[in-house]
Computed example of a mutant assay.
Amino acid sequence: MNTKSHLRTRMLCEGALMVALAQILGYLKLAEAPNGGSITFAMFPIILFAVRWGLRPGLMAGFLFGLLQLIFDGAYAWGWQSMLLDYLVAFTPLGLAGLFRGKSWGLFAGTLAGCLARFAIHYISGVTVYKILAPTEFLNWTFSSPALYSLVYNGSYMLPNTIITLLISVVLYVPLKRFILGLDLK
């Protein structure tokens, strides 16, 4: 019997597990950029949770994951603005995947929406906060434009992260379809 209280407790437990799993997966870095940002499998659990439970729980899970990244992952930041934008604000929009709750294609659209929003926040941070580094070198290129530097730098890890999350979604969609769509909650 799925009472409202039971579902809320289940949502909180699943959220805690998914945030913890994301944190653990965040330590398994495939690559790491010199000024923060890495390529990991960590976004998938947050996006999966958001698509399963909806926007508000998804945004909260993204925020909590960002907070854990800030506290435990050796935050790379240039002041409080960078800490706020690159961690708390940037990871929260992964929960936008919750806008696609219950849709058969929601996991894929949610991944794109959450990752694009996270990239946008990192881009804004790069243009506003990290402009103090200009001119700077990255990938053997010298950038004098903070906008171009932010686009290339943040794209260098966000594009692979988005692709990885989409690939995980493709592989797990069929075996987890009932779970992803929340059919077990009805």
Results as ranks from 00 to 15, higher is better:
Gly66Leu: 01
Gly95Arg: 03
Phe72Glu: 12
Leu30Ala: 14
Phe143Gly: 06
Ser145Trp: 11
Ala75Arg: 03
Lys103Thr: 05
Gly79Arg: 05
Phe119Tyr: 15
Leu139Lys: 10
Phe119Trp: 13
Leu55Tyr: 09
Thr165Leu: 03
Trp53Asp: 00
Leu25Pro: 00
Tyr27Phe: 11
Ala42Asp: 05
Thr9Ser: 09
Ser82Leu: 06
Arg52Gly: 03
Met18Leu: 10
Leu172Cys: 13
Ala77Glu: 14
Leu88Gln: 05
Leu167Cys: 10
Leu68Trp: 02
Ala61Gly: 04
Leu167Val: 12
Asn35Ser: 14
Ala20Ser: 15
Arg52Asp: 01
Met1Asp: 10
Phe65Val: 06
Gly95Ala: 09
Phe72Trp: 11
Ser144Leu: 09
Ser144Gly: 15
Gly15Thr: 05
Asn154Thr: 12
Asn2Trp: 12
Pro160Tyr: 02
Arg178Leu: 03
Cys115Ser: 14
Leu94Ser: 06
Val127His: 12
Phe100Pro: 06
Leu159Trp: 05
Met11Asn: 07
Leu107Met: 09
Phe44Trp: 12
Phe41Glu: 04
Arg56His: 05
Gly155Ser: 04
Met158Arg: 02
Leu183Ala: 13
Leu176Cys: 05
Glu14Asp: 10
Tyr157Pro: 04
Arg178Gly: 01
Ile47Trp: 02
Pro93Cys: 10
Arg8Ala: 08
Thr3Asn: 12
Phe108Thr: 05
Met43Gly: 00
Phe179Val: 09
Ser104Ala: 12
Tyr76Thr: 15
Leu70Ser: 07
Thr165Arg: 01
Leu112Asp: 06
Ser5Ala: 15
Leu25Trp: 03
Leu99His: 06
Ala109Tyr: 05
Thr111Gln: 00
Tyr130Met: 09
Gly95Glu: 08
Phe179Gln: 10
Leu116Tyr: 00
Lys186Asp: 15
Arg178Asp: 07
Ile164Thr: 05
Gly26Ile: 02
Ala113Met: 11
Ala22Pro: 01
Lys103Ile: 08
